[in-house]
């Protein structure tokens, strides 16, 4: 059984605003039956563009019902412009968290709201906007712009995350490369926005050592271990990183190649361009 928060359980067992509105001013839909969830959102909107009533109907699991219920509570009494700023993350926060595999339920809530707002404005959804979209995940019909937005809003870094949040990639998995590309695109944009580390920035020795050790742990060791080898950091002398290869690596004829072509570039990438590597025999 999923570990749902008290609030999720409460909103599932006692859904707020479940049902229909007669003559709604806006209707939004999201999800699909094939995927196992579907949500319909109905709104009453007054002349000042304030949401005066919201009701939902959901086919789906406990967290899908809870997300829809939470959404209606969150938007009630809000102006449309305010409501438009609500993200899936806001829904998750309101519910006191969701299991990561269930994040797509909050995304469905957000999409139903978006769809309702488009429906109200009669602009729905702009053809230009529509034309820019491309389906990435054929199994669940998820588009690139949707993935980009969710990756950005929730700071996702892996394909698995994207699947948990959007379902994309959870079926035949043939789109995994495309999803990876989209994640990299977002990460790249974010990096570009950050001030680049000034070239030759002076790392203190402790910072440098820490970064080098971290790079060994995260980037280098796992790769070597997969081949039955290992590496030991012996010393750091200025920009010279002195290492000793262990296990299979120590007797491997391609170890120099590994050092120069794989390990050194990693250190340059993650620590500093000035580093170079030197091997001592154990």
């Amino acid at each position: 059984m999923w570990d749902y928060s008290k609030k999720v359980k409460d909103h599932f067992l006692h859904p707020r605003n479940a049902g229909q509105i007669e003559n709604p001013d806006a209707v939004g839909e999201a999800g699909s039956l094939a995927c196992g969830d579907q949500m319909k959102l109905m709104l009453k909107i007054d002349e000042n563009e304030v949401i005066t009533d919201a009701k939902f109907q959901t086919f789906g699991c406990g967290s899908a019902v809870a997300s829809a219920s939470a959404l209606t509570e969150m938007i009630m009494g809000k102006k449309l412009d305010e409501a438009a700023h609500i993200t899936n993350k806001d829904i998750v926060d309101y519910l006191g968290g969701l299991p990561v595999e269930k994040m797509h339920c909050s995304v469905m809530g957000h999409e139903a709201l978006e769809s309702a707002l488009h429906n109200f404005r009669g602009t729905s959804p702009e053809p230009a906007e529509e034309a820019k979209k491309h389906i990435v995940c054929e199994c669940f019909g998820v588009t690139d712009d949707e993935i980009l937005r969710i990756v950005q809003e929730n700071s996702l870094t892996t394909i698995e995350d994207v699947t948990h949040y959007t379902k994309a990639g959870g079926g035949c998995m043939s789109c995994h490369d495309k999803i990876k590309g989209l994640i990299e695109q977002v990460v790249g944009e974010e990096k570009a926005q950050q001030p680049p580390r000034p070239a030759g920035a002076k790392l203190t020795n402790i910072q440098k050592m820490k970064l080098i050790e971290e790079t060994f742990e995260k980037e280098i060791r796992p790769m070597l271990k997969a081949d039955g080898g290992d590496i030991e950091l012996i010393d750091i002398d200025g920009n010279k990183v002195i290492v000793s290869l262990r296990g299979m690596c120590s007797s491997c004829t391609s170890s120099t190649f590994t050092l120069k072509k794989y390990i050194e570039p990693k250190l340059k990438e993650f620590v500093s361009e000035d580093l170079f590597i030197e091997e001592v025999k154990p």
């Binding site: 196992g36 086919f59 789906g60």
Partner: peptide
């Protein structure tokens, strides 16, 4: 209607069963 929702409500009534639902 969806299996996990059914199971959660069954569970509230003290009944244990399973579902083939994706959720």
């Amino acid at each position: 209607i969806e299996g996990e929702s059914i199971l959660m409500l069954l569970s509230e009534a003290g009944i244990a069963a399973s579902s083939g639902s994706a959720c």
